[in-house]
Design a protein around this nucleic acid. Structure first.
Lengths: 201, 201, 201, 201
DNA sequence: ACATAAACGAGACGGTACGTCTCGTCTTTTG
DNA sequence: CAAAAGACGAGACGTACCGTCTCGTTTATGT
């Protein structure tokens, strides 16, 4: 999620007579996005989307086989702007972790979580929580790679493991409805060492 | 996972009437667990649970306000025997982390994901996925406390933060459908230092 | 009883979609009639009607707003063949009154009573027990009109009033579980005068 | 209805224990009457009566076996005052017919109708519409008797038949939601002859 | 006076039905 | 002839009551 753009046709007057399929297609995705914003994934219904898009249910079912497929596409191009990096390792890690927390606390997160669960449920072994955090993992990886190549990291640092620890810890904190500020500092110290004073943890 | 009853036995109130039936209560939770195993969270219905437990729907609704509340308790009630601790800090931490992973892998992951999404969605401040990890957190805390009082830990170690890092990382790994073995070792090294040989990560 | 369709075919609207299924409609009314016969008005449930008609509940609710509306139509639809008229005023009136009594006695009285109570209760100005007697009233009216135009009736006879007196009296007799034979003769004499011998009442 | 008290002394028992609480009994009947006034027979529930009377459901069920039994007793002593008669035959008949119409149009009528239907349904062959109109029939009968003995009526007038015609016609008119004024005059003329001018019907 | 036993308030129980909502399919009309 | 509209069978939702069944708690005897 938070990736690639897929569709679609252009707008135009509603006018009388039968609608061109590209219009319907776009209207359905737009309706889905609106409803997701308003009531979230669980309360979104195909019926509601069709009604809002002023389209028959059949038309929705013709192009998307399930609610999850529809939402997946509707949500696909909701990309936040990637954060600018400074080259300061500690600051940049803080930036990408803040971005992850921001995503987790946004309205989008429950939708993404539900979507993931739904896809997992349908035995889609390719769809795991990883996808949710794909962008976040890449961002952390990029910061670490740049730092690693300039020797600013302990030898043998496994970028993948650091990603997992960072993301997992932040995820759990958000799920627990607790603050993430202190845990971010601790995670930084764990990797980079305490700046000057003794760490808080 | 493993622990506490949530609807409570009805203390403190006034009532003189008939008391809650322990058999119904247990039958409902058992039925919920069976259905979860068979068809998963999304296809579980309150109606189905009530029918399987041979109980009126009212009785389910009387004690649990939603599907997520019911599943949360049903899943939390599956208590494995607490593992025996040896006093060896590294070994004991490994033991409790293995227990957590075991719980997470018990066909529970999709349910867990869906449940989490559901709980995030309706932002119920009283009910978090955290409940599932209550016992795990306590186990880690107990091990750390014993070690801390005997001076085996770095001064200033924050037990709560360690719990969050451990549980969060393991949770994310399981949701991502990847191995947890290497990450457990890394987490141990992070806290206790590398044993003698260079760490695997 | 016997007549008109109430939910109507849905004229005047816009829609292009699928039209109402005549089979479902008929099956629902038939099921309602069967259930009325078996368990009566009070124990008839919409759910039971839908199940017996092998139809979704929605379909019943789509076309009838309440149990009483459904039963009213189910009962009204039982059209016996209209009786042949001879041109003999007294005989023809006797014939149409016999038809009304026959309808009232067809295991219908308790249903009729309950339905009437139900309709009275929620004061629906559009829906009266009167619908049940529409055909009867018309039959009486037709006989009187033919007779009136040939001068066989007292001048100024109000057909509507005669209908009300005839139907009301017969209705009350049946609801009281008493014979209607003598009252029919009296009603005829009241309008047409005593034939030759003294009246029975 | 509109008559007799039924309840039951509950004698004959043996025991030493606590005796029936007169307050509860009265509170239940009062609550039932209030609820009948407010929402009518169909929407009255035992549960609601018990709650309003601040009484356990058990207590209601202990003394009344069904909703109809309870309502029958609750409604039993709601007698309207009998109208004063003048001795003027035409005026007195008009008075008693007005009383009947008043009863039919009152809040009580749907309750009585429903109650009657309910009792009929339970195969209570003793309970028919007649009971509803017992008082009305008697009033008409009394007026006719007095007039008959003074020779003011046509010979051979059958009081019972007149009652049925009067009550039935009025009942049907009220059920049809139409005026009763003109029909009353016509019924009077039918029995007593047109006063001086041509009848309205 | 005191044990006793019924009646009490409360309310949980297994059920049935309610009327609504949504599912995914099927049928009809129309542009 | 394909898109759109919407009726269809199915079945879960959460609520309201049903009539039954414990629960302690009164409360009036009847020894």
């Amino acid at each position: 999620v938070r990736g690639q753009a897929i569709p679609s046709g252009g707008e135009g007057g509603a006018g009388s007579g039968r609608r061109r399929s590209a219009e319907s297609h776009a209207a359905i995705l737009a309706a889905a996005r609106e409803i997701l914003d308003e009531v979230g994934y669980f309360r979104l219904t195909i019926e509601g989307v069709a009604a809002r898009a002023r389209v028959g249910k059949t038309t929705v079912y013709r192009w998307w086989s399930s609610k999850s497929a529809l939402v997946l596409e509707a949500v696909a191009d909701q990309q936040p702007a990637p954060a600018a990096l400074t080259g300061d390792l500690r600051a940049d890690l803080r930036t990408v972790m803040d971005a992850t927390v921001g995503m987790l606390r946004s309205d989008l997160a429950p939708t993404l979580m539900a979507l993931t669960a739904d896809l997992m449920h349908d035995g889609d072994d390719e769809m795991h929580a990883t996808h949710l955090f794909h962008t976040d993992g890449e961002a952390i990886g990029a910061v670490l790679d740049r730092a690693g190549s300039s020797g600013a990291l302990p030898a043998g640092t496994d970028s993948r493991l650091v990603q997992d620890i960072y993301i997992g810890t932040l995820l759990f904190r958000v799920l627990s409805n607790r603050s993430t500020d202190d845990v971010i500092e601790t995670l930084l110290n764990l990797l980079l060492g305490t700046p000057e004073r003794p760490p808080p943890a």
